[in-house]
Design a protein around this nucleic acid. Structure first.
Lengths: 252, 252
DNA sequence: CGACAAGTTGATGATGGTCAATCCTTGTGG
DNA sequence: CCACAAGGATTGACCATCATCAACTTGTCG
């Protein structure tokens, strides 16, 4: 286990007080808020910069925090008998932690790219939400959005064949990073083949082989090892078995 | 395709006005509400009885409804090129539909046991939530709960081997039905082997074989074909690879 | 009783996991 | 700047697992 990848120390660095600089306030929670409400939320949030490999120990600990990913990608690592397994990803705009202070989990949340998060104490956020109804509405919207994404992810995982799963994974990644990356056709994976295999329930070798096969079929290319360029997105979606689905979220 | 299983007509029957009879108001949304707030929610909800096989056409249609399952189990069916596939289950207390009026989906929601749901027009619920903050808080709680369950389900699906997935499926079903069934050790599946296979990304034959194997190993028994009796739950959890996880929800 | 769907079981081939060797990339230290 | 080390990625060989096809049994409903 890389110390790089699993520093359990509180490896975060406060860079600012107040969530979301006013230039780019598309961070899920703040999007949809304005004026007084936005100000109130900003007042209780604190922005942190995470370097690749650092853990969000604050969020995983007592469960009294709630955070909002602004930029970058995080992974959720679950300890297992033989090392840890990547069981989920977090994309910009998504919320991690739990307002309700649910059972604390022993999952680690680690940045797989440099990232920025806004951290709130749950109690603070609750207090703001009590006074500003639109804040709780925004939270509810984020939660529904997260739910919709989780259910889409379940579809990826229930694909029977490895080929379909890998293709669906790439399509899903591309969809989630829409608007984040400058180049719409190139995707920075950040994850090793092994971690992707964890996510998909496949071995790292099978993951690698399937990706190679997709590349040989002319659907994708690898400018660098952890970069994917989409050459034939339609074809990829067809392999993924998602060809005729609308590209984004669906109710229930 | 059974007409029994996929009646696309509006096959619901209003049995009452007002969600949740006051005796058993543990239906997720209403739990946690009281007095004036509870009354307001009940006023805009309508309770329906679904018979096994009936579809909740109202919810899937325009996306302007939001509903709350009181009793029974529903399945979410997604149309695919070759027939439909079961892609998810809904358990009592969970919320279906979308408040935000997200993109309407063409998934069908069908009862796999007799069931009761409370249906709300999203606009009604929104209006009530605006006036009663604790209603939106309850909605938020339900959404986080659903999210936590979806993420646990993802863990089931990312298990590599068929044996583990089937065992994890059974454990998960048992956990979700806690308190619903009188007999804690017997589980009414309601789903055919094929539908279970859909959910788990397995063929129906493999599903059957794995269940037989678990039975031969003395972990479960089948009093009836679609009933499971847990003989050795600890052993089953061990096979599922979930032995050392807490039994219920975890944040993120 | 007969028809039909679900479930079980067997045989066989394709897919994916495992083990192992090699290559590529990156970072480090002389 | 180069050599070297260490992970990650790729590829191959082999074998376990799972999907598929098919026959048969069980259960249900008319």
């Amino acid at each position: 286990m890389l110390s790089d990848e699993c520093g359990e120390q509180r490896a975060v660095l406060a860079i600012d007080r107040g969530c979301c600089d006013l230039q780019s306030m598309r961070c899920g929670l703040c999007a949809g808020l304005a004026g007084e409400d936005l100000h109130a939320v900003r007042a209780v949030g604190r922005r942190y910069a995470l370097r690749r490999g650092q853990a969000v120990a604050e969020v995983t600990g007592a469960g009294t925090y709630c955070a909002n990913l602004t930029t970058g990608i995080l992974q959720v690592l679950r300890p297992e008998v033989d090392g840890s397994r990547t069981i989920g990803l977090v994309f910009p705009g998504e919320i991690i932690g739990d307002l309700n202070g649910g059972r604390p989990s022993d999952d680690a949340i680690v940045a797989i790219t440099d990232a920025e998060i806004c951290i709130y104490q749950s109690v603070d956020l609750e207090r703001v939400a009590d006074r500003h109804p639109s804040v709780r509405r925004a939270l509810l919207g984020s939660a529904f959005e997260a739910l919709s994404q989780a259910r889409r992810w379940m579809l990826v995982l229930s694909r029977p064949s490895a080929r379909e799963r890998v293709a669906a994974f790439l399509v899903e990644m591309a969809g989630r990073l829409r608007g984040v990356n400058a180049d719409q056709n190139t995707l920075e994976l950040g994850l090793s083949r092994g971690r992707i295999g964890d996510l998909l329930g496949l071995s790292l070798e099978t993951t690698s082989r399937q990706m190679q096969a997709l590349a040989r079929a002319g659907l994708i290319a690898f400018p660098q090892r952890r970069q994917v360029r989409f050459v034939n997105r339609g074809g990829l979606e067809k392999v993924a078995g998602l060809a005729f689905r609308p590209p984004t979220g669906a109710a229930v």
